[in-house]
Design a protein around this nucleic acid. Structure first.
Lengths: 206, 206
DNA sequence: GGATGTGAATGTCTTCACAGCT
DNA sequence: AGCTGTGAAGACATTCACATCC
């Protein structure tokens, strides 16, 4: 399949959220125009984004909400359950591990790790914080799909190496480090400070 | 000034982080090549990004680390202190309000708001959670620069309206809603679920 | 009639390649 | 000689506009 732009994938993800809202409202059919309006983009953009993956609408009518919802779930790979490990049990790791929005979308946090003896053994909503030394053995017996890395900068790379060796193919990285990983491993960097800096830039002349 | 692409601004923010690392390591001069290598981009990209704002290097030599650091801080508007309000004292709001990485970069969380009586009055590292009903009055007497919105979806828009009326010009929005705001207000949406979905998409055929 | 799906046109971003300065 | 700064070329993304089908 042709390579798809990241911006397109992000929009598909957004469309899916809107479709779920429409579904909850009992709407059965939407036009590209309606989807675009809710998402702050254009109707042509919506149709183009979808066209990379097939044709899901009916001319003259629009898109069936349940059908397009299902199609987008398939495209995004959301038809299954994902096992997540969180490495780093600080404030952000803790918040993410317990975030309800994940489970709703099939992302299940099974394990949380830390190296701090004060945190190991702590119970969070039925999840137990484990010693990071167990990480490799745990992953060997129960593989995970995605790792969320929320460690200090200096240990992020060595942990990433261990995750990769354990077969993890996707990492959501909160550590302020550019991780080096094999090219078949997907890394998504998230930085709150960087987001604030884009806002600070936007504020320059106001 | 010409309009600058968001992707450029994000990279400048990254370069700044790397420059601070170089500075800590005692490096005095860097080439575009060195910066690019650490940031996973190309030397030409680094030079082009900088060229929108001026010329900061010396041909044949590279860039002075302290000078370029300062230039980037100025460009990004980081030469000042920013006052932040956090609305929503859930797990994520709490983690963000106490995140040390913010203060290091001049972003100071002064106030945290919630509507839950069980949370109001709680003390977090010297920060007190206040009743969200006080929000408007507080902002009238002590304006803030940036708001971080971490509320449930259904109250996000009304809160955003109040923030806008109080003069806030930048919002970091964690609520899964497309906010409607006047065009002189900058909004940056952050969605952990969406980030995971781009990873899930990347995992499709692996 | 009405809304999709899609080539073609336009616009934006990235990469190239080299002149110009140190 | 070495590395920047930058037009020009190329790649990529968005928008337009219309033929196509329900």
């Amino acid at each position: 399949m042709r390579k798809i732009a990241e911006s397109t994938v992000r929009r598909l993800s957004l469309y899916l959220r809107f479709l779920e809202e429409f579904e909850a409202e009992g709407v059965e059919t939407v036009s590209s125009e309606a989807l675009a309006h809710r998402g702050g983009t254009t109707a042509a953009q919506v149709r183009k984004d979808l066209s990379f993956f097939g044709s899901f609408g009916k001319r003259g009518l629009g898109y069936s909400v349940p059908e397009l919802t299902q199609a987008l779930r398939d495209i995004l790979g959301l038809g299954r359950r994902y096992e997540i490990v969180v490495v780093g049990a600080g404030k952000i790791g803790s918040a993410l591990a317990q975030f309800r929005g994940f489970a709703e979308r099939g992302f299940h946090v099974e394990w949380v790790y830390d190296s701090d003896p004060a945190k190991i053994g702590a119970d969070w909503n039925g999840m137990t914080v484990r010693d990071v030394r167990e990480l490799d053995a745990d992953l060997a017996s129960a593989p995970a799909d995605i790792a969320i890395l929320v460690t200090p900068a200096d240990v992020a790379q060595p942990i990433a190496d261990r995750l990769v060796r354990a077969g993890i193919k996707a990492i959501l990285n909160f550590a302020p480090v550019q991780l080096a990983v094999p090219e078949d491993v997907a890394v998504k960097n998230v930085s709150m400070a960087l987001e604030l800096e884009t806002l600070s830039y936007a504020l320059r002349n106001r």
